[in-house]
Computed example of a mutant assay.
Amino acid sequence: MKKLILLAILALVAWNYHLNRKAAESGEDRGFVKEIVQGVQGAVFKRDPQFRCDGRKYCSEMRSADEALFFLSNCPETQLDDNDNGIPCEQKFPNQ
């Protein structure tokens, strides 16, 4: 089993080397490992970085409808949707 895992790792390293070399010939900056890292970074940065869970949980503490929606969707123990319809702070931000 260990030999199989080692063989798989060596195959990935060889494939990465091949992709990097092929990309360098065409002037691109690519490769198997770089694509994985960029994919993970893309997944992480798809979340809106301007909002973070910081303990606020009431509508009076929200500055925008987008911020309230982020908190409702991503932060625990918020009290932003009094009628459980999925729309936070309807009275404070009526034009959502």
Results as ranks from 00 to 15, higher is better:
residue 79 Q to H: 11
residue 84 D to A: 08
residue 24 A to D: 14
residue 3 K to G: 04
residue 22 K to G: 12
residue 59 C to D: 03
residue 8 A to R: 11
residue 65 A to H: 11
residue 72 L to A: 12
residue 28 E to M: 03
residue 19 L to I: 06
residue 75 C to A: 05
residue 55 G to P: 07
residue 18 H to T: 11
residue 7 L to D: 13
residue 62 M to P: 11
residue 59 C to A: 02
residue 93 F to I: 04
residue 78 T to Q: 12
residue 87 I to A: 07
residue 26 S to T: 09
residue 71 F to R: 06
residue 83 N to V: 05
residue 90 E to K: 00
residue 84 D to W: 00
residue 91 Q to M: 08
residue 48 D to L: 05
residue 78 T to N: 11
residue 86 G to R: 03
residue 83 N to E: 15
residue 52 R to T: 06
residue 28 E to Y: 06
residue 56 R to N: 06
residue 61 E to H: 15
residue 52 R to I: 02
residue 30 R to H: 07
residue 81 D to N: 09
residue 31 G to P: 00
residue 48 D to C: 04
residue 9 I to H: 06
residue 31 G to S: 05
residue 26 S to K: 10
residue 61 E to M: 12
residue 63 R to I: 02
residue 25 E to F: 00
residue 28 E to K: 07
residue 47 R to F: 01
residue 8 A to G: 11
residue 15 W to V: 03
residue 95 N to S: 12
residue 64 S to N: 10
residue 14 A to D: 01
residue 75 C to E: 03
residue 19 L to S: 11
residue 78 T to A: 08
residue 75 C to Y: 08
residue 9 I to E: 13
residue 94 P to W: 06
residue 88 P to V: 03
residue 52 R to A: 08
residue 22 K to T: 15
residue 56 R to Y: 09
residue 86 G to I: 02
residue 13 V to N: 05
residue 75 C to P: 02
residue 82 D to H: 07
residue 78 T to D: 13
residue 77 E to M: 06
residue 41 Q to R: 15
residue 20 N to E: 14
residue 11 A to S: 15
residue 9 I to M: 14
residue 8 A to S: 14
residue 47 R to P: 00
residue 24 A to R: 09
residue 14 A to I: 14
residue 7 L to C: 10
residue 53 C to G: 02
residue 80 L to V: 03
residue 43 A to K: 05
residue 85 N to H: 02
residue 2 K to S: 06
residue 90 E to P: 00
residue 65 A to D: 02
residue 15 W to L: 15
residue 53 C to Q: 09
residue 92 K to I: 11
residue 53 C to W: 06
residue 77 E to N: 15
residue 52 R to M: 04
residue 85 N to G: 10
residue 15 W to A: 15
residue 51 F to N: 03
residue 81 D to L: 09
residue 43 A to M: 12
residue 79 Q to I: 04
residue 69 L to T: 08
residue 35 E to K: 00
residue 16 N to D: 12
residue 1 M to E: 03
residue 39 G to H: 13
residue 7 L to W: 12
residue 48 D to H: 01
residue 15 W to M: 14
residue 60 S to L: 08
residue 3 K to L: 01
residue 70 F to D: 03
residue 36 I to M: 11
residue 27 G to E: 04
residue 87 I to H: 04
residue 66 D to C: 00
residue 19 L to F: 00
residue 38 Q to R: 05
residue 54 D to Y: 11
residue 42 G to Q: 09
residue 2 K to N: 13
residue 54 D to E: 11
residue 80 L to M: 09
